[in-house]
Simulated scan of single mutants.
Amino acid sequence: MRGDTTPASAGKRFVLPSSFIGSPRYMIENYQDAMAICRWAGYPDLFITFTCNAKWPKIELFLSRKPGQKIEDRPDVVARVFKIKLDQLLNDLKHGRHFGRVIAVVYTVEFQKRGLPHAHILLFLHSDDKHPTAAKIDKIILAEIPDLNKEPLAYDAVKQYMVHGPCESINSRASCMIENKCVKHFPKKFCFQTTVDNDGFPIYRRRDNGIYVERNGVKLDNRYIVPHNIDLLVKFQAHINVEWCNCSRSIKYLFKYITKGPDRATLILEENLHVDASTGMQNMTDTDEVKRYLNCRYMSAIEACWRIFEFEIHYRQPAVQRLRGRLDF
C-alpha cells in the first residue's frame, strides 16, 4: 500500500495459551481431546445434566451451624459438596450398570448465573449396549410421573426436580419463553410408546394416563416432565436430565456444547488504526486476548472456590495423549 494510510506498525497480539484454564485455546484442546475419544469409542450414547441442589442435607447442615447463614455465604461448602456428589454419580455411572457397560466418560462443569454448579456428562457405552430398542430405552429413561400410591418416593422426586414450567399459555412470562414460545419445546406431545425417528432422536413415552403434579396451583401432566433415570433421581435428589443421543447429527453439537466456555457479553466500537500525536503516523491497534478475556469474564464465588480447590472443570476417561507438532500459538 502507498500513501499516508500505510501503517507504521503491524501491531502486536497478546494471546492466552492453552495452559490458562478457560482460555479459547484451552477449550479447543479439550474439544479435540473429546473428539479423539469419540474416534476411539464411537458416538456418545447418553447426555446427562447434573445440577447442584442447594437444599442437600450436607449443605444445610453446614449452614445451620451459624444462624442466619445463607448459601451465598459459604461457596466453599457448595463447591465441596457438589464435587463429592459428582464423584459419587460418576462412580455409579461407571460401575452401577444403570445404562450398561461404560467405556468412556467426558464431562464439563459450568456455573449458573446465581453460582450453582452443574455438570454436562457424555457417556460412551460398550458396543453391545449401543442401539437399544424402544423397550430398552424405557427401562433406563422415563419421561412420565410415577404413581403416587405405588412409588411415593419417585413421585416426590419427579415433582420436585423434573417438572418443566408451567410455561406457554399458562405462564407467558416464564424464563424459557422467547417470542411467545418455549425454547425447550414444552409442553411435549402425548406419546403412547417410545419411538426413534429417522434422524436417531428418541421420542419418549408420555402417556395420557391422568396422573399429574400440581405446581403454583397449575396441574401439569406428563407433557411437562423432563427425561430422567428414576434410580439416579431418587438417590441424588437433584435435577438429573438424561437424554439418549446416539446419532451422527448430534455429535459435534454435544462436544462443542460441553466445551463452549462461560457466558459473556461485551460491545466495544473502536478504530483499528490510531494516529500517533507526536509523529502523525498511523499505527495498528494491538490485539490483546488477555484484556479481552478479563473484560468479558463472569465468575461467581462458587466457581472461584472450585478453581482454588483445583477441582477438575473438564474430565475425560480414558486419558488422551496429545502429540505436539507445533508451537501453541
Rank of each mutant, 00 (worst) to 15 (best):
G3A: 05
T5Y: 15
P7D: 04
K12R: 15
R13A: 12
L16D: 02
S18F: 08
S19D: 09
G22W: 00
R25Q: 07
R25A: 08
I28C: 11
Y31C: 09
A34F: 09
I37A: 06
C38G: 08
C38S: 10
R39N: 14
W40M: 13
W40I: 13
D45E: 05
F50R: 02
W56H: 15
I59Y: 04
E60S: 10
E60V: 05
P67T: 03
G68N: 02
Q69V: 09
Q69F: 07
D73W: 02
D76L: 08
V77L: 05
V78W: 02
V78L: 06
R80E: 15
V81D: 05
K83Q: 15
Q88V: 06
L89H: 05
L93E: 01
G100D: 00
G100P: 01
T108W: 08
V109A: 04
Q112K: 02
Q112M: 08
G115F: 03
L122A: 06
L123R: 03
L123T: 01
L123P: 04
L125P: 05
S127A: 13
D128E: 14
K130Q: 11
H131Q: 12
I137P: 00
I137F: 00
E144H: 04
I145V: 00
P146H: 00
P152I: 01
A154P: 07
Y155V: 06
V158C: 01
G165R: 03
P166M: 07
E168H: 15
E168G: 14
R173C: 11
S175H: 14
S175K: 15
I178M: 13
C182P: 01
C182T: 02
F186P: 07
C191K: 11
F192E: 15
T195C: 10
T195R: 10
D197S: 08
F201Q: 13
N209S: 05
V213P: 02
R215H: 11
L220E: 00
D221E: 06
L232P: 03
L233Y: 08
F236W: 01
N246Y: 11
C247H: 05
S250P: 06
I251C: 09
Y253Q: 13
F255P: 06
F255C: 10
K256E: 12
Y257R: 03
I258A: 03
N272Y: 11
D276W: 00
A277H: 12
T279V: 03
G280L: 06
G280I: 06
M281P: 07
Q282P: 14
T285V: 09
V290S: 10
C296T: 13
I302D: 03
A304D: 12
W306E: 07
R307Q: 08
F309S: 09
I313E: 05
I313D: 01
P318V: 01
A319L: 13
A319T: 13
V320Q: 02
R322W: 10
L323P: 07
D328C: 09
